[in-house]
Computed example of a mutant assay.
Amino acid sequence: MANSPSGDSVTDRLLRVLETFTPTRTAQTAAEIGRRAGLPPSSAHRIVSELVAAGLLERDDDRRIRIGMRLWELATRSSHALRMRQAAMPAMERVQSRIREHTQLAILEQDEALFLERLSGPGAGSNVTRVAGRLPLHASSSGLVLLAYGPPDLQNRILSGPLPAFTRETITDPSALRRKLAEVRLIGHAVARGSIELVSTGVAVPVRDETGRVVAALSVVLPREAAVEAALIELHAGKRDIEQSLGYRG
């Protein structure tokens, strides 16, 4: 139902308000929210006030707006992502304790890799990944795994571009990406050196659910020139434990 002169629906405007929050932008004024959501000031203040009243947003002591606990509560009820994270946590903790580098779990969401969890130690190297953050499928090791085992229509969309470069090592040529995806399926893991950050190497393996479908990628982020063999041993052991928790018996 359209309720604005521009034809925007109520749902569309609510979604745009919520999408102004990011992992690095956790508190905003109502005016900032309105500007980023492309809403008139009066509409922004009304929507924000209604969301605050419902508990989906909340005001802090400085009158800035934050995501409310009620939204978190609703989002985690019967959540597929929560089930996946709970199944993966024991294995992720073991991998992180042995490799002592960033250990991550990602799923496919709207043609991107969405990270459900990241465990890091004090000595771990550089990593741009954040919990609830996203990375492109063509440029991250987790994304390459999810893309390689994804459906043909997903692969066709990504391969049709654009394939933006994040570093000089990012795969931006569709033919090269197609070859990389075939390699991932052949060897059962992805290694992406310097693809997101030149100083880092991502290593990821697929995780299957009870149907045998790849539903997640388990990964570590290593220093650029680090050997990957030890990490792969731990990742494969971890993914088997996660798959067992999910009911996969392959």
Results as ranks from 00 to 15, higher is better:
V131G: 05
E112V: 04
E117G: 03
A87Q: 07
R100H: 13
P40A: 15
G123L: 14
S78P: 00
Q96Y: 02
P152T: 08
H102C: 09
A124Q: 11
A124H: 11
Q104G: 03
I47C: 03
S120E: 11
S78Q: 06
R59N: 02
L137S: 05
R64N: 02
F115S: 01
P122N: 11
L159R: 13
A81Y: 09
Q86K: 06
P136I: 02
D62Q: 15
N127P: 00
L39E: 14
L116N: 02
P152I: 03
H80F: 07
P40H: 14
R100K: 14
G123V: 12
Q110I: 03
R134H: 12
H102Y: 03
L114Q: 00
D60T: 09
R130Y: 11
R46L: 15
D61N: 06
R157F: 03
M92A: 04
E117P: 04
N127D: 09
L56H: 12
E117V: 09
S141A: 15
S140N: 04
E73N: 06
L146C: 05
G125E: 02
L119I: 15
R94P: 01
L147K: 08
V145T: 08
S97Y: 11
M84Q: 10
G150S: 07
G55Q: 05
I67A: 10
E101N: 10
S43P: 01
V128P: 14
G143N: 01
M92I: 08
L144G: 01
R83E: 08
V52G: 04
A91M: 13
D60R: 10
D111N: 12
A87K: 10
S79Y: 04
P122E: 11
G68Q: 05
A113D: 04
G121I: 05
A139R: 02
F115W: 11
A88R: 03
M84I: 03
T129N: 09
L51Q: 06
D61A: 12
S142R: 00
D60H: 09
G38Y: 11
E58R: 13
R100A: 14
Q155S: 09
R94I: 12
W72M: 01
V95Y: 09
G161Q: 11
L119H: 08
E93W: 02
A75P: 05
H80L: 12
N156S: 12
E117T: 12
H80T: 10
M89Q: 09
A87N: 10
V95T: 14
D62N: 13
A148D: 05
I107R: 15
S49F: 00
I99Y: 11
P151E: 15
M84P: 06
V131E: 15
I158R: 01
L159A: 11
A44R: 03
R157H: 05
M92K: 08
